[in-house]
Design a protein around this nucleic acid. Structure first.
Length: 996
RNA sequence: GCUCAAGUGGCGGAAUUGGUAGACGCGCUGGAUUCAAAAUCCAGUUUCUUCGGAAGUGUGGGUUCGAUUCCCACCUUGAGUACCA
């Protein structure tokens, strides 16, 4: 009976499915363990062998944990909203839901073939209304919350309103927009309802704001910073421009410090934590206010421009952020970003032309040019001066594009002796470079280090080190009322709106331009049908094409747009957040164009336009791990039941790609912290341990066509020839890099008549490791591998390729190694005439092999070193085969060790051994040290650290006896060749080293 | 530029606290079996060698009886990030 993997694998996949073998229970005496994969986006291309790598690893771990007596939750689902389905819909008119469904079917079929132990009863699809109902629900909770800095957590907005009503907003310490106006309780009560709504929006954790966004015209959508790579879109590589739009934003910046601190509590790799730290970008320093020295000219200009009479006497200030308040006496100029709002106000008439020309020139340069060209120093002098807070000396104010409008205050105090960019700028424009460091030469470059230096020429800071001087400088600035200690974060609030169709609709409608939440009990708000998936002619998002997309507040349902009878009154309100400019077509124009005939008034019938934007891809993926905690049938009316949330807590092990280091993983942490603040979940971090699997690369094959001919030269013959390398499909090439010439000829018509020049009778191809992609013809489909070698071989081979976290090339040729191992394994149990396994006593060697394997495999799994356990299995099977082991006491536990890796063959042999229950219920074998105890050791004998020969000696031999025996040995005498050793090192049980 | 990884045979890789470098597998070479091929099995496979040995883990130093492993400098590759004040 030989190893028929196809039959075996189909049989057990069917068994697991029918018996619901891997269904997790929400209550159990066993400890819980939650193993999660980053769920896939079901793309039309299906899976290639690179995709399942992480799933195989997590599946091995999940199966191992079951053997170890845990109640394991190992679910799977689909992140099924996204751009590709929508782009396809735009091209073909096919509804994205249809293609998504088809793709999911393909994915599921492919996943099932690999034999994963997923609990499919808990499947999640982000594009299902029963799922995104709860994404919408979380959005509403965010809208109904603000961040209280005193409590350091999110709180209901109703509490904020209560404070406004009794104390105004002066005592509130909350995360909010920069431009909130101060008001008293009395004032609050007198504000119109609309004004109150505007103010609250400045505090809510999700809010509407006119933001400068990354707009990608080709994709017709806004992109987050992490979706842009080198100034072009990550998806498709289209150009991205800056554009102002009214967008929903998430106040993630309120959580910056907690997102940073939380990293200390979780078991992630250092590099991943480092990326998140960089992304959050905390810097500690001080905010310093510089007074602008008023000049007659600037004030005169102000008066003519501005009718506000108070401006003649007002003194202007520039606020900067610095991490080096200790260098304040080194300031010799100030630099403002060209976009800084003060620039136009302070520039003197003499400098006006130059400054304006410079601003225009910078505005023309794209983001990309500015990034690419960091060497050219440019700037302009405004003609204005600021006053040094301590010396009162005038400081020239410049503008320069090395200062970014988007970071800090868009202005810096320039300390050329301590910052290389300031130094370069000062050199270029001949600005003095005062030295404030004791005994440091700054004639060539700035001294940017904080360590081992004392401050000089700095009045009260003289002789102090960085730490002391910083503290003192902040203290003195506070005394003057011109500064205070401050912490800045690079983390920006996250834009949450997408001008796309295939995403979660917002549960939002607009009354007089003010966003209103739909009551949670009326969710989900289901994505409406549209005829086309493109933006409208007016530039509205695709939902602008929906005919039935208005909210009836009386009947609480979505109704036809024609019923909207809204009168526009926004023009009378001077404090609206939305602008009705042509530029922004998300909110202002999201009011039905049909109602936009100004001047008309309507009877308000309670029917209002719905939001036209949809949510971004990261909305659904920020909380899906909670949805898995309840199986579909029991989900009821909750995003997850309280008991389930309490039982499963959070994900114990999360495996996925490193491309989500700053996007998904940061947003999910943010939402979990928010949900925890509001008492909806009991955990503060979603993923306790996280592992990034490395990418599997393709091994491309090349054939070489002589330039201008149809002659193909074998790899060894191309030297000195002018050849063109052409990708061949990797399936035409065997393990020895030999091309199947006939298959290649039949591949494409232009190769039909190709001539092949062979070497040694074969055509050898060239090889190169590249990313797996269709265009490189190096994609390997797991279905074919399963067909030819079996899922167990695929699983073993993917693990055998190398360390999980490392990028490594796929080469199908190597799979024969693990496939051969499985055949050998089979032969160890099943002979020509049936089962080999007997109830015989195991030998000492048998036990030794088994127990060293148990120890090694257990250690390997705990350390996620799956590649080495595969070799351990090979060694064990090789040894047991050589020992002709037939003992059930050995072969039974061995199967359990192998079953997480190769579950199908393990189940089959387990059953043949007479078991009636799945091997997945068997307990992991227990390692016993006693079987590995040896009485002697083969000592390596080295001379000056080089091993020259080995010597078998008893382990209980004393140090002195070992030395005597070794020194008397003939090979030692030969090695020493008459010399007397200076020293002999004997480490009992390890090594002998002779020096001399 | 900065941050983080990583450099070991023809290839993927192993060596878990400093102690026999190259486990395991692919490929390659030779042999057995076969009409032949596939499959299977056996032997060999870091390099050099005067067959005694010698050298060897990116390069150059250092610490140590002993370094792939620890320290310093440099080179190369990959990933992330970028005028962040």
């Amino acid at each position: 009976m030989s190893y028929h993997f196809n039959e075996i694998e189909a049989k057990w996949q069917k068994y697991w499915s029918e018996h619901q073998t891997f269904k997790a229970k929400n209550n159990s005496d066993k400890p819980k363990y939650y193993v999660l994969d980053m769920f896939p986006y079901p793309s039309g291309a299906g899976l290639h062998v690179g995709h399942p790598l992480g799933y195989i690893a997590s599946d091995i771990y999940a199966r191992y944990k079951r053997h170890k007596g845990f109640n394991v939750l190992h679910p799977q689902g689909y992140d099924s909203f996204g751009l590709p389905a929508e782009q396809y819909a735009i091209q073909t008119g096919q509804h994205p839901a249809v293609t998504t469904e088809t793709n999911i079917t393909t994915y599921r079929r492919q996943l099932d073939k690999i034999g994963f132990s997923f609990d499919w009863s808990r499947e999640v699809r982000t594009s299902n209304p029963e799922y995104y109902k709860w994404t919408q629900w979380i959005f509403i909770q965010l809208f109904e919350s603000y961040y209280c800095n005193d409590a350091d957590k999110a709180r209901p907005i109703s509490e904020l309103i209560a404070v406004f009503e009794t104390e105004g907003n002066q005592t509130i310490n909350a995360a909010c927009d920069d431009d909130v106006i101060p008001f008293s309780a009395e004032e609050w009560k007198q504000f119109s309802s609309e004004k109150q709504q505007d103010i609250l929006l400045q505090y809510r954790l999700t809010y509407l704001a006119e933001t400068e966004v990354n707009w990608c015209p080709a994709l017709g959508t806004v992109l987050a910073n992490d979706e842009i790579v080198n100034g072009v879109s990550e998806r498709g590589g289209h150009p991205v421009i800056r554009k102002k739009m009214t967008q929903w934003s998430m106040r993630i910046s309120a959580y910056a410090e907690r997102l940073l601190q939380g990293l200390e509590t979780i078991d992630w790799t250092d590099s991943l934590k480092e990326s998140q730290r960089n992304w959050i970008g905390k810097s500690v320093g001080a905010a310093v206010t510089f007074n602008v020295i008023p000049t007659m000219v600037t004030e005169a200009l102000e008066v003519t421009k501005n009718t506000d009479t108070s401006s003649t006497s007002v003194s202007r200030t520039i606020e900067v952020f610095t991490t080096r308040p200790d260098t304040i006496f080194g300031v010799s100029f100030m630099t403002l970003a060209p976009e800084h709002e003060l620039v136009s106000k302070i520039t003197t008439p003499d400098q006006k032309a130059e400054v304006e020309a410079y601003i225009e020139a910078t505005a023309k340069r794209s983001e990309r040019d500015r990034m690419a060209d960091v060497k050219t120093i440019s700037g302009a002098f405004t003609g204005a001066y600021a006053e040094h807070p301590f010396t009162k000396a005038p400081i020239p104010i410049w503008i320069g594009d090395y200062v970014l409008a988007g970071y800090g205050t868009g202005a810096v105090m320039s300390v050329p002796c301590g910052d290389q960019r300031d130094y370069d700028f000062a050199k270029h424009f001949n600005i003095p470079i005062p030295n404030i460091f004791e005994g440091v030469d700054i004639s060539e470059e700035a001294f940017a280090s904080k360590d081992n230096v004392k401050i000089a020429n700095s009045d009260f800071l003289n002789g102090m080190n960085y730490k002391k001087a910083t503290k003192r400088a902040i203290y003195e600035l506070e005394q003057l009322g011109q500064g205070k200690g401050k912490t800045n974060y690079r983390l920006r609030d996250a834009v949450f709106s997408r001008q796309r169709y295939w995403g979660e609709p917002f549960p939002v409608y607009y009354v007089n331009g003010k966003p209103q939440m739909i009551d949670a009990k009326h969710l989900p708000i289901v994505l409406p049908d549209v005829e086309k998936y493109l933006p409208t002619e007016e530039g509205e998002p695709p939902l602008g094409r929906a005919d039935v997309w208005a909210w009836d507040t009386k009947h609480n349902k979505v109704v036809s747009n024609d019923l909207v009878t809204e009168a526009l009154e926004v023009t009378s309100n001077d404090n609206v957040i939305q602008s009705a400019s042509e530029e922004s077509h998300s909110v202002a124009s999201s009011m039905s164009p049909r109602a936009e005939s100004r001047g008309e008034t309507f009877q308000d019938n309670g029917i209002y336009p719905l939001e036209l934007n949809t949510m971004p891809g990261w909305a659904g993926s920020s909380w899906y791990f909670f949805r898995y905690m309840e199986e579909q049938a029991n989900r009821g009316d909750a995003f997850a039941s309280e008991e389930a949330l309490k039982y499963w807590e959070n994900v114990d092990l999360y495996i996925g790609g490193s491309e989500h280091a700053t996007g998904h993983l940061l947003y999910a942490r943010f939402w979990v912290k928010f949900l925890n603040d509001r008492g909806f979940v009991g955990v503060d971090e979603p993923f306790k341990k996280l592992i990034n699997q490395g990418m599997i690369l393709g091994t491309s094959a090349f054939v070489y066509r002589e330039e201008g001919t149809n002659i193909f030269l074998s790899k060894g013959l191309i030297d000195g020839k002018n050849v063109q390398a052409i990708h061949s499909d990797v399936s035409f090439v065997n393990a020895s890099d030999e091309l199947d010439v006939e298959a290649f000829k039949n591949w494409r018509p232009e190769f039909k008549k190709a001539e092949f020049v062979l070497e040694d009778g074969v055509y050898k191809v060239g090889r190169d490791v590249e990313k797996m992609s269709k265009s490189k013809y190096n994609v390997v489909n797991p279905d074919n591998i399963c067909e030819q070698y079996g899922a167990d071989s695929l699983r073993l081979y993917e693990m055998f390729l190398g360390p999980l976290e490392q990028a490594k090339p796929w080469n199908t040729a190597g799979i024969t190694g693990v496939h051969g191992f499985l055949k050998k394994l089979w032969k160890l149990y099943v002979g020509q005439d049936g089962l080999n396994v007997k109830d015989t006593e195991p030998t000492k060697d048998n036990l030794k092999t088994l127990h060293k394997t148990i120890k090694k495999v257990e250690d390997d799994i705990e350390n996620f070193s799956f590649n080495t356990s595969v070799s351990t299995f090979m060694i064990a099977v090789n040894e047991l085969t050589a020992q002709t082991c037939t003992s059930k006491q050995i072969l039974e536990p061995l199967l359990i060790l192998i079953s997480p890796y190769a579950p199908h063959i393990a189940e089959e042999l387990w059953q043949q051994l007479g078991h009636t229950k799945s091997i997945s219920t068997a307990a992991f074998p227990i390692f016993e040290e006693k079987h590995l105890v040896e009485s002697s050791k083969n000592y390596p004998i080295s001379f000056n650290g080089k091993m020259r020969f080995t010597l078998e000696l008893p382990l209980d031999m004393s140090k002195e006896d070992i030395e005597k025996t070794v020194m008397a040995h003939e090979k030692t005498i030969a090695q020493l060749d008459g010399r007397t050793p200076k020293k002999v090192i004997v480490v009992p049980g390890k090594i002998v080293n002779i020096v001399g």
